[in-house]
């Protein structure tokens, strides 16, 4: 039974939900595969703590997860369905809310949350050696301050991919993949330059590794923070600008 929604001109979350339903059949495969791959990588990540032989596979899966995140928005690059999508009686802002929300919030959650949950579950169910446990704890402590940066950094190729999907008329799939990779390479170059600057200017300031791990981490973070904040701001500004352009394309693009 079809339940029709009202055609009010005000922004409606109900209509955003109906839009989610509209897109669902095209997203279904992604909604199944992404969490499954993420869960699998969580299991493999756990096994790397048992044997170093799993390390290579873990690296490959980590790369696969990143690629999944970067190219996630290509699900919106369906061939020739743009006119019917534009004709849907929903506000452009509602369409943009769903598309951006799905690409920039939901996809990262699908890619990384199952991995984290699975790893945590395995970690608690099958305890690992105390040395590895200590290493993981230190690693978590160290990475705690970088989660925001990692998230925004991961969005740079993703938003580039989404922008191209809605900006291009032809070859959207190929061009979106190409430009997402270009964004990733550009980002690597920028972070490499920043890394080189850090190495040249700050290496001698960073504490002596013979100090306690806590003191080393604190000192390391203290000297690194300005550079990380700079990189975070560059990425965040880029993501915001591209998001604005993407919204403009969703709302105003002539078909």
């Amino acid at each position: 039974m079809t339940q029709n929604i009202s055609a009010t001109d005000k922004f409606s979350w109900n209509r955003v939900m109906v839009l989610a339903r509209y897109y669902y059949p095209n997203l279904r495969t992604q909604l199944i595969i992404y969490p499954l791959v993420s869960l699998l990588s969580g299991i493999i990540l756990y096994f790397t703590t048992k044997s170093i032989a799993w390390g290579f596979l873990s690296g490959a899966l980590s790369l696969a997860l990143s690629i999944m995140l970067y190219l996630g928005p290509i699900v919106f690059a369906r061939k020739q369905t743009r006119p019917i999508e534009t004709l849907i009686p929903a506000r452009s802002s509602e369409k943009a809310t769903f598309i951006l929300g799905y690409s920039l919030v939901f996809i990262p959650i699908m890619v990384y949350l199952p991995q984290f949950l699975m790893f945590t579950l395995m970690y608690h169910l099958f305890p690992i050696s105390s040395d590895f446990a200590e290493l993981i704890k230190t690693s978590f402590e160290f990475n705690k301050g970088f989660y925001g940066l990692s998230y925004v950094q991961g969005l740079v190729p993703t938003i580039t991919c989404l922008f191209v999907v809605y900006a291009k008329r032809n070859n959207r799939l190929v061009m979106a993949c190409v430009w997402a990779m270009v964004a990733m390479i550009a980002q690597t170059i920028v972070s490499g330059i920043l890394g080189a600057i850090i190495a040249i200017r700050q290496f001698h300031n960073i504490a002596n590794p013979s100090e306690s791990p806590e003191a080393f981490t604190t000192d390391f973070m203290y000297h690194l923070m300005p550079y990380l904040v700079t990189f975070f701001i560059i990425c965040a500004v880029y993501v915001i600008i591209m998001a604005v352009f993407t919204v403009r394309n969703i709302c105003k693009k002539q078909v």
């Binding site: 059949p25 095209n26 019917i84």
Partner: peptide, 26 residues
């Protein structure tokens, strides 16, 4: 003439697309 529906069946169009149209007559 060149329009393409986003779903493989009309039943799916009815299920996912028609709810946007208040006067849709199943």
């Amino acid at each position: 003439d060149d329009m393409v529906f986003p779903y493989p069946t009309i039943a799916e169009m009815e299920r996912y697309h028609a709810p946007f149209y208040p006067n849709f007559d199943a």
